[in-house]
Amino acid sequence: MAKFSDSLPTIEEATAFSTVINIINQFLDESFKKLVALPDGRIGYVCSVITGAASNSNLKYREPIIIASPRNSDIESPEMTLNVYPDRLDFPFTYFLSYKP
């Protein structure tokens, strides 16, 4: 499966993001994880989550994702926001953009 993160440089260590990574790891499966440098300068944490999607879903049961670090100015903020992005080049965006609850 082609992944966006395959085209990004890997990072060996991100001390400022390590606390966040330790918290995130409590909620993720045991999939392979790595850090990458995102094009906008943030750190991306490559991992996967179990979605529980059924066989007729456009989501995969184990969906690869990238969790992006907050901007450097927000890293210590108790209200920092992490962004989560799909890590599949074939992610079915059109299906989700047309969904109306």
Rank of each mutant, 00 (worst) to 15 (best):
F91Y: 15
A2Q: 09
V46K: 00
P101Q: 12
P9A: 11
S5Q: 01
Y85H: 13
D6R: 02
N58E: 13
E13Q: 13
D74Q: 14
N56K: 09
L35P: 02
A16F: 06
K100M: 14
P70K: 02
A53E: 11
E12S: 10
K34C: 06
K60M: 08
Y99G: 07
S69E: 03
P78C: 06
I75C: 08
V84Q: 08
A53P: 09
Y45E: 00
N83Y: 05
S7W: 01
E30L: 06
Y85I: 04
K33D: 03
P92F: 14
E76I: 12
N72F: 12
A68S: 15
F4M: 08
E76F: 12
I65T: 04
T94H: 11
Q26T: 09
D6T: 02
I65D: 06
T81V: 12
N72A: 11
T94M: 13
V84M: 15
S73E: 14
A2T: 07
M1C: 05
I75W: 03
I66G: 02
L35G: 02
L8H: 02
D87W: 01
S57P: 09
S48N: 07
F17D: 00
S69C: 07
P70Y: 03
F93Y: 13
T81K: 09
F91R: 06
D74E: 15
S48Q: 07
L82N: 06
S5P: 00
L82T: 11
D87M: 02
G44A: 05
S57E: 10
G44Y: 00
T10W: 04
K3T: 05
L38T: 09
F91C: 07
F17S: 01
P92L: 15
